[in-house]
């Protein structure tokens, strides 16, 4: 990033464009959620829009598009550790020993029911 005044002006214009895009995308994500889609489609669409918005904030507001190699390296390492944390924990849920059931699959007892039974 250079700090020249002209570049700054250009950057401010770009920032405002991104800002408008973010507002529009927020409206879109709320509007889309009102459509009756399947639960899975809904999740995918909502997260996809969130990812686009997140990339805009990260890429332009946080200058990741123009950033230095060292910072890419740091974020890459974090990403490398984040993926197994998300993935492997979930894998454990879908891969129990035959017949045994991982705890959260037990029937959920709602708060009201337990209090009534006492």
């Amino acid at each position: 990033m250079s700090d020249h005044a002209e570049d700054i002006k250009k950057q401010v214009r770009l920032t405002i464009a991104i800002f408008v895009a973010l507002l529009v995308l927020t409206v879109v994500t709320v509007a889309v959620s009102k459509l009756s889609m399947g639960v899975t489609t809904g999740i995918v669409v909502a997260l996809a829009i969130a990812t686009v918005k997140g990339s805009l904030v990260g890429g332009f507001f946080m200058h990741l598009v123009w950033e230095k190699r060292t910072i890419y390296a740091v974020l890459l390492i974090a990403g490398l550790f984040l993926i197994p944390m998300l993935g492997l924990i979930l894998w454990h849920y879908y891969d129990p020993i035959n017949g045994t059931v991982v705890a959260p699959m037990l029937p959920a007892v709602t708060h009201e029911q337990t209090t009534e039974s006492h």
Partner: peptide
Amino acid sequence: ILNVAGGGSAL
């Protein structure tokens, strides 16, 4: 039975 909402996971 513990009086909580439940649905969590010790794992």
